[in-house]
Design a protein around this nucleic acid. Structure first.
Lengths: 181, 181
DNA sequence: CTGTTCGTACAGAAAAAACTGTACAAAATT
DNA sequence: AATTTTGTACAGTTTTTTCTGTACGAACAG
């Protein structure tokens, strides 16, 4: 038979594990997910050493893990007077975490691919003027160009979507439901 | 100096590599990304052996890779009369790929976490009636419950968002721009 | 029925990622 | 100024993932 404290702990652990699995789907490592889960339930901002204590992992891992989570804005550094150690807490607003996470991801995709896309488009367009181009090759180039043009359209749209997430406009179109569902 | 064909090939390769990097961000392996890129440019549906030829990888890898891409609906099996081998082609509609990919991901997150969430909620709620609960523990339970309630709100919202993607409703709110931007 | 061809399961090898302990620089404390 | 505390860089180890080759069953062809 479990005592009350153990039951509380068990419920937490179960949900944390579930959260971690989810975050794994999104490309984070399981331990980073678990770390986030722990911070999600921890009411006070945490130090690296506390994290080490609760995860049982090395301080180095905590340091890198929490920095990765910070970059994704899932976790924030929080300053407290009189405390020398760095303090971190999980972002309380899950909606914010969500929209930030995906808009960041998509912005990165856009930046990365659009650069390459433009360059490829330019090279191919130049090639169209090359007199040595065989008819077959020309057709090939045109086919590729039309694919890239289509892709460009997609990136333009994605940019708009990312903005809509970042700005919170998305919540106008898909509103947050009332407390009582 | 490069011939025309090499230049075409180079432009493709560059973009493919870029695509692959993006897909890596989304948790796919680089080679799966590259495979998708190749199929993106390949006009005809491809057989496993053609893929093997173009990627230089084993047929086993092609088989598993293409099946993973199929599950994500980034690639489709296509039947052609008289052809015995399985044929696959990349989904032409990038918008569809995108919304399918993310709504699938989110639905999975919801299913996975909501189950655990409900169970944890139930256990904690039961615990509230336990006479052995110390005041501290009670506070703890209530704090956890309120976090879970908040999370539930998030899943309810996410479900709506996923539907909006799946159904294409999202395109009403964030319209696809015109061909000529 | 016999011999091919095709896709995939599976075990092991190769490659990549995650994790740890040590070492050290920066900042704070004495 | 000397000492302690704190976070991170880095090298090496462990764990996980990815990839390959062999083997085999199913579908087809002769």
């Amino acid at each position: 038979m479990m005592g009350s404290s153990e039951k509380i702990e068990q419920a937490r652990q179960d949900y944390i594990e579930s959260l971690a699995e989810t975050m794994e789907m999104y490309g984070l490592s399981p331990s980073m997910g678990r770390l986030f889960g722990i911070m999600f339930f921890h009411d006070e901002p945490m130090t690296l050493d506390e994290m080490r204590g609760l995860t049982g992992m090395s301080k180095t891992s905590m340091s890198t893990g929490v920095r990765a989570l910070s970059r994704l804005k899932l976790v924030h550094k929080k300053w407290q007077k009189g405390v020398r150690k760095d303090l971190y807490e999980a972002e309380h607003d899950q909606f914010r975490s969500f929209v930030d996470f995906f808009s960041q991801l998509w912005e990165k995709e856009i930046e990365l691919n659009q650069k390459t896309l433009k360059k490829a488009e330019k090279n191919l367009t130049n090639l169209l003027n090359d007199p040595e181009l065989t008819p077959d090759e020309k057709e090939q180039v045109e086919s590729d160009l039309s694919k890239l043009e289509q892709a460009q359209l997609y990136y333009t749209w994605l940019e708009k979507l990312a903005h809509s997430f970042e700005s919170g406009e998305i919540f106008k179109h898909v509103p947050i439901p009332n407390q009582k569902e």
